[in-house]
Design a protein around this nucleic acid. Structure first.
Lengths: 200, 200
DNA sequence: TTCAAGTAGTGACATTTGTCATGTGAAGGG
DNA sequence: CCCTTCACATGACAAATGTCACTACTTGAA
């Protein structure tokens, strides 16, 4: 019996999927989580064979969690299940050694099959992703990403500098460079573009 | 037997829901559509008792379709099923006389129950919506919304002013007032907040 | 070991943004 | 008719933002 945990904040989908998976004879959904933090605890307690993770969840994202699981060298296989075909997300997921990455756009029957495969040590990726991947990586350095994320959350340059213990001028230099790299007109466009590509 | 049509562009959810609903003894999913246009045709052909409509779909949105069904004085009951708790969407849906408005965030068991209710002539709304509705309507005037939307798309104040044939000062006054109304620190926060509430 | 990149900083400058006071005219409700 | 709200406008000022040039230290790869 394959023991599965589902982390997905959209209750309707979570409920529907777990009911469906439970109809499979070899699969049992042993836990459901509303967000990454809940999932972390449940994984520790129950050690499921497979985790189905949504990316965009409150508190802790599925990618954060996938990275933690990877760091911990856990035996639990991870399948990312998301709406977003953003290359940035996919890249990060690959970096975190996930075993599967499926789009919610795919057929629901595919899911049980994917679970069986990853348990078998195979990997399963939506073909759209693999295709998209063949270019466009994040041009921002890690420091630049940090700065842009804070700016995107509404902080002014000065506040960001206090946050990161940098001088105000440095932050403005970073922003200038970011705007330049992303070919944006100002920070607002930079934020939009970076989000679109999944770079922050 | 209640005959149901599902229009939802996210295949995974659509597949899962229709399988689930088909397990109910009194409900049968007679058609699935990928978008509003497909749904329109299927409704004409099959005259389902209930339509389950997602809002954000390609080609024609669920709200557009709901309005058409309403105009046509069709007997088909409409349930909107969406991720978005935006008051604007809800308002429009109420205007289109929908029989139910559920969030994908709700439990999946609720759905079959909601379908039975609306067939019975009752209505079914996610309580969150009704609650939100009574509070928070959009504090922005239509002009302010217009300005904020353009700013959110990355335009500078000057560009917005050219776009709307206003003086640059006026646009800055609007932005100042918007930032004030939304209790934001700057335009970036104002954009984020307005988007969160579904005000732009 | 040289070199490119990333990180961090300064100073100067122009532009954009945000705030305030203040004024006008139009529309709508009581 | 008065009062409020909205739309639109100015001018003035302070603060934030964006750009440039130039310096300096560290690190990893060729």
């Amino acid at each position: 019996m394959i023991r599965v945990l589902i982390a997905e904040d959209q209750q309707m989908l979570r409920g529907a999927l777990s009911t469906l998976l439970n109809y499979e004879e070899d699969i049992e959904v042993i836990a459901q989580a509303n967000n990454g933090k809940e999932a972390t605890e449940l994984i520790h307690q129950l050690a499921p064979d497979v985790c189905l993770l949504d990316i965009e969840m409150p508190i802790k994202s599925g990618l954060d969690l996938a990275e933690e699981i990877f760091e911990a060298k856990s035996l639990c296989k991870v399948i990312i299940l998301t709406t977003f075909a953003r290359t940035g997300y996919f890249e990060r997921a690959i970096g975190a050694g996930v075993h599967g990455y499926l789009l919610k756009d795919g057929p629901s029957e595919e899911l049980a099959e994917a679970i069986r495969r990853v348990v078998n040590g195979q990997r399963m990726f939506s073909p759209e992703l693999v295709f998209n991947q063949l270019k466009q990586d994040n041009p921002l350095t890690s420091r630049e990403k940090e700065v842009l994320k804070l700016v995107a959350s509404g902080l002014t340059s000065k506040e960001v500098s206090a946050h990161l213990f940098l001088s105000a001028g440095t932050v403005r230099n970073y922003m200038s460079e970011i705007i330049n790299k992303l070919e944006a007109k100002n920070r607002i466009e930079a934020i939009t573009k970076a989000k679109e590509k999944g770079w922050i």
